[in-house]
Amino acid sequence: MDNAEHMQLIYVILAAAVATFLTRIGGYVMITQMKRIPPRMEAALNAVPAAVLSTLVAPAFLSGGWDVAVAMLVALVIGLRFSSLWMLLAGWLVVMAIRHLLV
C-alpha cells in the first residue's frame, strides 16, 4: 500500500467509525422524534444484515476452490447446532486436512 492509499484507508476507517456511532445513537434520537417506523420499512431494515452478509458468503463458496466449498458445507452443518467458534474450528480443520493430507 502506498501513502495515498494508506491515508484513504485511515479516512475510510474514520468514516466507518462515525457511521457506526450514528447507528448507535440513531435509535435514541429517532425514538425521541418519531412515534414508530412504518412496518414495511421495518421489514426491510430487518433484512439488511442477512442480505448484505449473504453476498459475502455465496460468491466465496463458488470462487474459493473445492476445498473451501467443502469446508464451508461442513461449517454450515456445525453452525445449525453450535456457536460460530465451532464452525470456524471445523471449517479450518477440514480445509487444513484437505490441503496437507489429501493434495
Binding site: 476445498d67 471449517g91 487444513m96
Partner: peptide
C-alpha cells in the same frame, strides 16, 4: 495455514 477459509465461514455464522 487455512486463514482464507475463516472469513467466509465467519460471515456464514453471522447469517445463521
Amino acid at each position: 495455514i487455512g486463514l482464507d477459509v475463516l472469513l467466509p465461514i465467519y460471515f456464514m455464522g453471522l447469517v445463521l
